[in-house]
Computed example of a mutant assay.
Amino acid sequence: MTKLTLGSHPFLLGFDQLERLVERTAKAGNEGYPPYNIEQSSDHSYRITLAVAGFREEDLSITVEDRQLVIRGRQTEEEESRIFLHRGIAARQFQRSFVLAEGVEVGAAQLENGLLHVDLSRARPETVVQTITISKR
């Protein structure tokens, strides 16, 4: 018995990229740092909020690479002469990735009170009706 994958099912023509997208989403990094929320702002807009306390704007970068939103953070150690008796605040770099559906655009990003907000919007798809003519042989 052969295993049918999502992209090879006879009723799902042209969906082979969907299977690759699901695999890429699973590999996108499920590390728990930094914590984040995803909110639906309206029918066609979303907001991702990451808790990035201690990061400045220049420590953060946001890129879109092949329909994948990548948010990176890297803090620089400014004073090496500091002696910590207890260090409970993490000063580590991170990378958080989100796979974007086709038509989802990244809008504004803002940093406030230790939270990084990234706004996303989805364009409304146009309904297209196509008539195919039948030719005689």
Rank of each mutant, 00 (worst) to 15 (best):
R72G: 02
G73L: 05
G73T: 05
G73A: 07
R74E: 10
R74P: 00
Q75S: 08
Q75L: 12
Q75W: 00
Q75C: 04
T76E: 15
E77H: 03
E77G: 05
E77I: 09
E77V: 08
E78R: 13
E78D: 12
E78V: 12
E79M: 09
E79D: 14
E79T: 09
S81L: 12
R82E: 13
R82S: 09
R82F: 15
I83E: 08
I83G: 00
I83L: 13
F84Y: 15
L85A: 08
H86I: 08
R87L: 12
G88P: 07
I89H: 14
I89P: 07
A90H: 06
A90C: 01
A90M: 03
A90R: 10
A91I: 02
A91S: 13
A91R: 15
R92Y: 03
F94N: 02
F94E: 01
F94A: 00
Q95M: 08
Q95Y: 00
Q95L: 11
R96Y: 04
S97N: 12
S97C: 09
S97W: 00
F98M: 01
F98I: 00
F98G: 00
V99N: 11
V99H: 09
L100F: 11
A101D: 15
A101E: 14
A101F: 10
A101C: 09
E102P: 07
G103Y: 03
G103W: 04
V104Y: 01
E105I: 09
E105M: 08
V106N: 06
G107C: 02
G107F: 03
A108I: 10
A109V: 01
A109N: 13
Q110K: 15
Q110D: 15
Q110R: 15
L111Y: 10
L111H: 10
E112Q: 15
E112Y: 09
N113P: 00
N113M: 06
L116G: 00
L116T: 05
H117W: 08
V118K: 00
